[in-house]
Amino acid sequence: MNYPFCIRCGWVLALTFASCYPGLAQTPTPARDTSFTVYSALAKARKTDPSITLARPAVPTIIRSRMNVPYCTASGRALQLDVFYPKARRQGGYPAVLLIHGGGWRSGDRSQHVPMAQQLAARGFVAVTAEYRLSTEAPYPAAVQDLKAAVRWMRANARTYRINPKQIATWGFSAGGQLAALVGTTNEETRFDSLACNIGYSSQVQAIVDVDGILAFIHPESGEGDDRKSTSAATYWFGSPKTERPDLWRQASALTYVGPHTPPTLFLNSSVDRMHAGRDDMMRQLSQFNIYHEVHTFPDAPHPFPLFNPWFSPTLDYTVAFLNKVFSRK
């Protein structure tokens, strides 16, 4: 996830970088970083395998959607999400999934996973795609705080959108996978529940689906923090290299928090080993605590595999089977 840096920091972020890591200070502009998009990822992947296609299944007719819903205010603006849910009502509501996009914590947007959210809704889930503040707007831990607030919003609006508040999962790809795992493993941490939105509701989740997201930043398998050729995406997100603030890099690693109350976890991975740094260590710890987990790897798949055919459908199938198994026990 070493995306090239674009000069797109807000004034606050620029001042933060200037104070803690002078080499990162840049002239701010209001433009978004568009270095990672579904289409740029597709073009890159097709250089290796021209048969890869963008996953755009037909929109199911049995679902409803609500777009551009504000869920919290941060950095002086409203953060938004989209909700996809079954038309049919069910007593007790449906299990829910918060889908978190990737893009190196500084690029990408929630529209990446609208197709997955629509298909999950057709399979009996309420699927929410939420935006979060990227590193061009606010450094770590803003994104984590935002997503915790999104979970609280889901519980606060459970009746409206037919959500079972006892069955909420995080699902994320790439940087979103790292965030999905961190949100889930920090259920008992209060430091990230700092946004004053729906504070009367819990941000705890009951399952994690990590799709090619790093689990430990300071780890032999991790490529993040290697700034010799260009500044890594994580260094921009933290505002400091890992040699200067290793405490932050460990604090943002899901592996740091694994314990007896960690939710059941599904790992879905490409063939790119560095994208799941810390996964095997986390699985060993989950086994020690007798916590259910699964891992499925797609050989020869590129990193953005869940966005493309032929991997979209099996990613969906693995997700649905795992969540149905986990939530059937609750």
Rank of each mutant, 00 (worst) to 15 (best):
T185C: 15
V272N: 06
G278N: 08
S203A: 14
G223L: 13
S174I: 12
R245W: 08
N198E: 06
A234V: 13
Q178N: 15
V211Y: 13
A254R: 06
H219T: 03
A233N: 12
R191A: 14
N187M: 00
D273K: 10
A175T: 13
S271Y: 12
I168N: 12
E188N: 15
E188P: 01
Y201D: 00
D226M: 13
G176V: 06
Q167S: 09
T170Q: 14
S271E: 12
E189D: 08
I208H: 02
G259L: 02
R191H: 06
K229C: 10
P260L: 07
N198H: 15
H219F: 09
G213M: 12
S203Y: 03
A234D: 02
S270M: 12
N164V: 05
R279H: 02
P165T: 03
L266Y: 11
E188I: 02
R191T: 09
L215M: 14
T265A: 14
A175I: 12
L268K: 01
L248F: 13
T170G: 13
R250S: 13
V209E: 01
R191V: 11
H261E: 01
L195W: 06
T235Q: 06
F217Q: 09
G278K: 09
A181L: 09
K242A: 05
W171K: 03
P263I: 03
T190I: 01
A233C: 14
T265G: 12
L268A: 00
N164A: 14
S232C: 11
A180W: 09
A180F: 10
T185S: 15
A181M: 11
I199N: 02
L182T: 07
S271L: 04
Y236C: 04
S253K: 05
L266G: 07
A180K: 07
K229I: 10
T185F: 15
R274I: 05
G225E: 03
A234Y: 04
V183N: 03
E189Y: 00
V209C: 05
E221V: 00
G278E: 10
T190N: 09
T256N: 11
